[in-house]
Design a protein around this nucleic acid. Structure first.
Lengths: 221, 221
DNA sequence: TACCAACTACCACCAAGGAGGTAGCGGTGA
DNA sequence: TCACCGCTACCTCCTTGGTGGTAGTTGGTA
């Protein structure tokens, strides 16, 4: 940790020039103190363990161990530093992956210096920071997911068949389905046979998987 | 549409007092022009169709047709207004639902007036706006999803078992799995048996379903 | 060393699933 | 009326799946 209300940080990035840039930026802020630099993931983890800084600025695209992997390793270790991804990539998947892996922030290298500093302050106070550009991107991402619905519309299964497919997708056996619908097991088998034929599947397992994924896609779970 | 670089908007909210507040706020900004008010979803849709404003401020919690439903209807119609949800609820689900339903922004009623105006400007320029508080909330939400894995952590399946479960969840039969892994079918059956026992499931169908849903929960979609 | 867990293999046995066929019944539409 | 479709039922034949048990190998750990 660090004294009073100043925050220590280290930067992990394999570009010396970029580290230099960060150092300059940090030096402009009296509350942030750069206490170390690392040029790779491995080196960075060692350094973080040794210094236990308040913040870690981590580059996403590094040679060797990449940023995500480094992030995971850092989160698995005992240090309680907050990790901010700092990178050029505004790829949606990268952002999502980073956040899911426990990143405490995601900033872009092309942000205005003062914005970056502002975000670092917020981050050190425990907030998750995302640069504005990415907020928007996340919002779009959520929309995309919802855009899927109208598919091949059940390939014309009859009501009964849909009903049975639903039960299959709950893991029920033919016998149980028969009891459930109050028909014989033989009849259930006939329906299953038709379902498989219509959907061009090879077993009830495939049918179940298909139904689950399908159901998931329409009712955004 | 509206002249030069000023933007027309309407507000849909069942609280007169709140509409008054919005009107006052809007009047402080020379580029924003309030051209209509509606006290319900139905009324709002009619008004929007008639006036085709640049922006629509929509309350989430309304009596009768609620905000989400109104939002959907608006998006289904031909108007190309951008819809900004404006509400007191900072509930995560609400935000996500709204965005998935096509909202172009989500602002909180307790924001600072100047921030609100700033966001409205950004929105009228085609950006999706979220108030800061919510950005953070979304980030946390993404994390939550990822936080699940530690679940029952696969109930201690061995590597081989996980591997086989994965293949089952692709719909493969024991025979095919055997070929795939270059072991005998009998051995595959043994593994399947163990998987079922460990996960307390009754058939490969249930296993497949479980695996699919589980996989869905961890790897976004 | 002895022990344990994971992986492999083989066996027998029975339950479940799927393919093929035939057939009766009720409703709908030409 | 006849033809068609969806739903039901029953049949045979064969494959697949799941349970029980025994047992050999490897690698790591007490």
């Amino acid at each position: 940790m660090s004294p009073e209300n100043s925050y220590s940080l280290i930067v992990i990035d394999d570009h010396p020039l970029f580290r230099k840039g960060v150092a300059d930026l940090i030096s402009m802020d009296s509350e942030l103190i750069l206490i170390g630099e690392a040029a790779s993931g491995v080196e960075g983890i060692a350094l973080a363990t040794e210094l236990n800084p308040d913040l870690i600025l981590l580059d996403l695209n590094m040679k060797g161990m990449d940023g995500i992997e480094t992030l995971k390793k850092l989160k698995e270790s005992n240090i309680d530093s907050r990790v901010i991804m700092l990178t050029v990539s505004d790829d949606e998947d990268d952002v999502v992956t980073a956040l899911r892996s426990g990143a405490d922030g995601y900033l872009l290298k092309d942000m205005e210096p003062e914005d970056t500093l502002k975000c670092l302050h917020q981050a050190s106070q425990g907030r998750i920071v995302l640069c504005e550009k990415l907020t928007e991107l996340l919002a779009y991402a959520l929309r995309e997911e919802a855009a899927h619905p109208a598919d091949l519309d059940q390939a014309s299964l009859t009501d009964r068949e849909e009903e049975i497919l639903e039960l299959i997708s709950q893991g029920l056996s033919n016998k149980v389905i028969a009891r459930e619908l109050d028909i014989t097991e033989g009849t259930v088998k006939v329906h299953v046979k038709h379902i498989l034929k219509k959907l061009n599947l090879r077993s009830r397992v495939e049918a179940a998987i298909w139904a689950v994924k399908e159901g998931d896609r329409r009712h955004h779970h």
